[in-house]
Design a protein around this nucleic acid. Structure first.
Length: 482
DNA sequence: TTTTGAGTTGTTCGA
DNA sequence: GTCGAACAACTCAAA
């Protein structure tokens, strides 16, 4: 009888999981495996928020597998050693997995594949994370795309819909002698209870992902292109962490969204369906870029930026930004939302990134590292693209003169201050007109609101106008030098 | 090969 | 208050 190991990584779901589906077609034993491979020498190990998510997602996956007659074997790495061990124990003749796209993961997985194949163990990998593989979408010259819009057009031409496979109702039982590390022993939960704000807003795991998708389709998709800009509304999908851990795949999303568009055209106009799928395409584009330009997690794609005059390392400014104490309420609200919930609304991410890279002129890598550790949706491809786009040094980057003004953005996208008051409660009693710029409020208004600037809430750490001009000058310098 | 059109998300200034 | 232009060229993609 054949024995197939299904190595779960960022594909923590049973529905439309190509590797699992392939294993179940062998009609032999199937051993679902997860490896804590933090012993592998990989850069970009899961940050604290990601580990929190992973803990809960693994518990969910494990329970779901058990409910279907199987279970999840959890081992500690290095991955190759753990796999080899399990192959020996179970006499497995095949290992399957869904592919990862971080450069270091690709290298590791290829080495493992080579090694096992030499030893006569079949290895097969699948696409469970993307609509199309990064090497499949190329321009007419056979080169990767560097601009989003033509990429998006090419993606639509290639097709957004694929047949999905259902989750198996039952799975073959696990041999009962297999050892497994309990999830709790992996030590991924925080020792201090900083996750109090995470628990009410997230449900890691496949069921949570499906639930969130349905909620999004029913409540937000119809008005997506407008609603997604207002952080106090549930206008975005909030599927990013589910997507990162593969509790839901983009193909499932495309089928669901296009299906809804066809069946309920009045509730889901084409403009809204494609407006959302376009964002899924951004995720796809990010993976495309990281695959073809693997150094972009660390280095600017635009080499001119190697000479950009960033501000000399400034601990206090960076810390003010990280802790939401910049004195710009819109930015501080975002940074605190991030710290408390592991997530930040996209509209606000752009503003905090703009302040860090343009006004404070701190290297975008500082921001990328902070996001990496604090976001539950931390994803190397998306994070790298986002930060390089914001800093202006990436593919299809924001024009250098696009410098967000946190006051204007706040007034435009949170005019009544609902979002702001949630995350910066010390400004609660300030009238709306001063909320996004408390330093302009007359002293008597501040006093009545119980605010003492510099004490109960910081004064701005940087002057917007001056720092904007300095940033533009720095860009001019860059242009001159090249 | 050459040419042409276009490029996520903004701000400021002056009329 | 509203509106259009300026902010820079440059590279990418495709005809």
């Amino acid at each position: 009888m054949s024995v197939t190991i299904v190595w779960f990584r960022q594909d923590l779901r049973l529905t439309d999981n190509p590797a699992l589906t392939a294993a179940l077609h062998t009609d032999g034993r199937v051993i679902p495996l997860f490896i804590d491979s933090s012993a592998d020498p990989l850069p970009w190990r899961d940050g604290a928020a990601s580990r929190w998510w992973l803990h809960h997602s693994l518990k969910a996956l494990s329970a779901e597998l058990a409910r279907r007659g199987s279970g999840l074997v959890i081992r500690r790495g290095p991955a190759e050693r753990a796999l080899r061990q399990l192959i020996t124990e179970t006499k497995a003749d095949k290992v399957v997995w869904n592919r990862l796209y971080e450069p270091a993961h690709i290298a590791r997985d290829q080495a493992i594949k080579r090694e096992f194949k030499q030893q006569g163990v079949a290895v097969e990998s699948f696409n469970g994370a993307l609509l199309h593989e990064p090497w499949q979408v190329l321009n007419a010259s056979g080169e990767p795309y560097r601009v989003f819009t033509p990429y998006w057009k090419a993606l639509q031409r290639s097709g957004l819909e694929f047949p999905l496979s259902d989750a198996a109702a039952t799975l073959p039982p696990l041999p009962d002698t297999l050892e497994s590390v309990p999830v709790a022993e992996l030590g991924w939960l925080p020792r201090m209870a900083w996750d109090a704000g995470f628990r009410p807003v997230w449900t890691p795991g496949e069921a949570g992902a499906q639930h969130q998708l349905e909620r999004f389709l029913e409540t937000a998709l119809a008005d997506y292109t407008t609603g997604r800009d207002f952080p106090d509304r549930p206008g975005t999908s909030r599927l990013s962490p589910h997507l990162h851990f593969g509790e839901l795949g983009p193909r499932q999303i495309a089928v669901a969204v296009l299906g809804r568009m066809r069946h309920f055209p009045s509730e889901c106009p084409e403009s809204q369906a494609f407006g959302y799928l376009r964002e899924i395409a951004w995720r796809e584009f990010a993976h495309h870029l990281l695959y073809h330009f693997p150094s972009t997690a660390e280095q600017p794609l635009d080499a001119r930026f190697n000479d950009f005059p960033w501000t000399a390392d400034d601990g206090p400014l960076l810390r003010a930004w990280q802790t939401g104490q910049t004195g710009y309420p819109w930015v501080d609200a975002g940074m605190r939302e991030l710290w408390q919930t592991g997530w930040m609304h996209n509209r606000v991410r752009m503003a905090v990134a703009s302040l860090l890279t343009k006004n404070l002129r701190l290297p975008w890598q500082h921001g990328a590292r902070w996001f990496w550790d604090t976001l539950v949706d931390a994803d190397l491809a998306n994070n790298s693209l986002g930060w390089q786009w914001s800093a202006g040094c990436g593919a299809d980057a924001a024009p250098y003169f696009r410098i967000f003004n946190p006051v204007l953005q706040g007034q435009r996208f949170d005019p009544e201050g609902t979002y702001l008051r949630t995350w910066v409660p010390e400004l609660n009693r300030l009238p709306d007109r001063y909320l996004h710029q408390p330093w302009t409020a007359p002293p008597v208004v501040l006093r009545e609101a119980g605010i003492e600037l510099g004490t109960t809430y910081p004064l701005p750490v940087v002057d917007l106008k001056q720092s904007r001009e300095a940033a533009l000058a720095a860009f001019a310098l860059l242009k001159e030098a090249n």
